[in-house]
Design a protein around this nucleic acid. Structure first.
Length: 259
DNA sequence: ATGTCAATACAATATTGA
């Protein structure tokens, strides 16, 4: 089964891209981030017309996550990340599909460093770690898919220029340590398991001709629990979609696991 | 310092958040 993570940067602005992605790639599970619309504005009828259904956690203006599946909607397990009842951001939805636990994650960006936004990012990651540990304890196949807003290393395989990005929240030692703490619970980074070497970028900024000069970085990750990693067949980035008309600044990032 | 984009408030541009 093909499981995809795709930060759309606005589902209404991106609807033609989304529908053509569904029709061309026919993913078994499509995790979306930054849908940027209220629950009642989610274009579910357009998605149903393409033969898919969905579960979503929207928010007016920004954030918003969803999980789309062909035919019937996924079985929702959780809407929102536990650990802070005062958190108003729509950044987490978790469902079960064919025995696999799937989370669509939109981790806080955290810029600029040194502000409450960065503190929120780190606190959110701590809550995610606690929850991820609880998921592992279930001893089931789990895929944590999303825009993690963390560039794992300074390696050119992860980022076009560590120097240019050095002061960004995506690169800070605290962000990376929080990411590694989750990874080190026992998850496998599917992209790096498939491609131990070589640049695999998932995001290219709209500004400064970043796409044209391949100045990207890797922030969309699919983390596999041991039982999911045992079934890993392939992983990749559908990079071509970043070059299309009215594209998102992210490319769809995916993992294939045995049925 | 954005060679950019989307959504919103508001009513032609400014603000927010990437």
């Amino acid at each position: 089964m093909k499981i995809v993570s795709y930060n759309l940067n606005g589902i209404r602005a991106r609807l033609p891209r989304l529908i053509e992605y569904i029709e061309e790639q026919k993913p078994d599970i499509l995790c979306l981030q930054e849908v940027k619309c209220a629950d009642e504005a989610f274009p579910i009828e357009d998605i149903r017309s393409a033969g898919y259904d969905g579960v979503w956690h929207g928010q007016k203006g920004f954030n918003g996550v969803a999980i789309l599946t062909p035919g019937r909607p996924a079985q929702v397990r959780r809407i929102g990340l536990p650990g802070d009842p005062d958190d108003t951001h729509s950044r987490y939805i978790e469902a079960e599909v064919d025995g696999v636990v799937i989370a669509s994650i939109y981790l806080p960006n955290g810029n600029p460093v040194g502000t409450e936004k960065f503190a929120y990012k780190l606190a959110w990651m701590d809550r995610l770690r606690v929850h991820a540990q609880a998921l592992l304890a279930e001893e089931r196949p789990v895929v944590l898919a999303g825009d993690w807003n963390v560039i794992p290393t300074d390696d050119p395989d992860d980022v076009f220029s560590a120097r240019a990005m050095a002061s960004d929240a995506l690169m800070q030692p605290e962000s990376r340590a929080a990411y590694r703490r989750i990874l080190n619970l026992g998850f496998t980074d599917a992209i790096r398991a498939r491609y131990p070497d070589g640049a695999v970028y998932t995001f290219w900024d709209y500004t400064a001709g970043c796409w044209q000069r391949d100045a990207g970085f890797r922030i969309d990750h699919l983390l596999l629990s041991p039982l999911a990693a045992d079934r890993l067949l392939d992983a990749g980035v559908d990079k071509e979609y970043r070059g299309r008309e009215k594209a998102s600044d992210h490319a769809p990032t995916w993992v294939g696991i045995e049925d």
